[in-house]
Design a binder for these strands. Structure first.
Length: 347
DNA sequence: CAGTCGTGGCA
DNA sequence: TTGCCAAGACT
């Protein structure tokens, strides 16, 4: 039997008051600090963000300090968090607030939506948490929790399914304690109403949950099918001067994957056999292989970029040496490997 | 609108 | 070891 919306809402708030995690960004009311936390938390685990949030606020304690910082310093503080566009947008947002809003930080969701890097979710989260505005903030947790609550048969990535979730979220947001409510809904999704093993027996709102009543909460949310990833074959080549130990790096294009970061030059080929021949064909007997990482990249946008940077003067006497060879790696593991071996600190 | 953008944890 | 995906925004 479905209980009333206000009753379920009150039950979830009561549970949140008792069982919420002690997160550092819940100990502040500084809207800038909350903004930083929300951007860091986009598509990123709480435990990962913990390590960055404190340090970020020590380095850039105010909107003004972030706005006047160098891009290099900003990216350096972000290094390892991923989705580096977020760091650039965060600084662009700080500059926007200083230059366009006269330094006055927005206080409403509508205002926040005009800030670079702040979309519908983040605008609602900041407005409700930092300013108490009764607006919804629908993230992946909320999509999951509410789709289970409704036993929603429409996929959440369809227009109709998303509309149903947004409608319910808006109704629920219009009640007491908007900030606590926003966090309570996400907290439930993060700790009890989890993707693979929901703890319905501990859930404060299971009595009103249609999926729990059906006995199969993990059937929701429904999702449309994902497409198959495409493959790209690449070589990472690193040149080092034996005498000095100096290594040859190139900077990636500002746009796209790992934009603006440093790496060994990569050769790209759609054909595996051609890729296997490229490094030696290009460098002949003049050089030995220093680093020769054979990579299969999925979901990589660099397919067309097969140009090889010229080897700068003074490195011609270096040696190419085989360091490692891999059959293939998924993107996440590939990037881990690239970061371990290829990425330089930016600051 | 569908594609793109990182990383780390976990079953 | 491998696939999946988590506090999304932008183009």
């Amino acid at each position: 039997m479905q209980s009333s919306l206000p009753a379920s809402r009150a039950a979830l708030l009561g549970w949140f008051d008792l069982h919420q995690r002690d997160l550092p960004w819940r100990r502040t009311r500084d809207p800038y600090a909350i903004w930083v936390s929300e951007v860091m938390l986009q598509q990123t685990r709480v435990e990962t963000v913990r390590r960055y949030w404190d340090r970020w606020l020590e380095t850039f304690p105010t909107v003004a300090s972030l706005a006047s910082a160098s891009t290099e310093a900003v990216l350096s503080q972000w290094q390892g968090l991923g989705y580096y566009r977020r760091a650039r947008n965060l600084q662009a947002g700080a500059i926007f607030i200083v230059e366009q809003l006269g330094g006055a930080i927005p206080t409403t969701a509508e205002g926040w939506k005009t800030v670079p890097g702040v979309g519908p979710y983040t605008a609602g989260a900041i407005a409700s948490i930092a300013f108490g505005e009764p607006v919804p903030a629908v993230d992946g947790n909320v999509l999951r929790v509410l789709s289970r609550w409704l036993a929603l048969e429409r996929p959440i990535d369809s227009k109709e399914g998303r509309f149903a979730i947004d409608s319910l979220a808006a109704d629920l947001a219009a009640g007491p304690r908007p900030g606590a409510w926003t966090q309570a809904l996400m907290e439930l999704g993060a700790t009890l109403c989890t993707p693979t093993s929901p703890a319905c027996l501990l859930c404060p709102v299971s009595a009103g949950c249609a999926a729990a009543a059906m006995g199969e909460p993990t059937r929701f949310p429904l999702k449309a099918k994902a497409k198959a990833p495409r493959e790209v074959h690449r070589f990472a080549l690193a040149l080092r001067q034996p005498e000095t130990g100096a290594e040859w790096w190139v900077q990636r294009d500002e746009q796209g994957l790992l934009g603006g970061l440093w790496e060994f030059p990569l050769l790209t080929s759609l054909d595996e056999a051609q890729a296997a021949a490229e490094p030696l064909a290009h460098h002949g007997d003049l050089l030995h292989i220093f680093t020769h990482i054979r990579l299969t990249v999925t979901l990589c946008s660099a397919t067309e970029d097969a140009t090889e940077p010229p080897i700068p003067d003074g490195y011609q006497t270096g040696r190419w040496v085989l360091l490692e060879e891999r059959e293939s790696l998924p993107q996440s593991r590939l990037m881990r490997k690239l970061r371990e071996r290829l990425l330089l600190p930016t600051g």
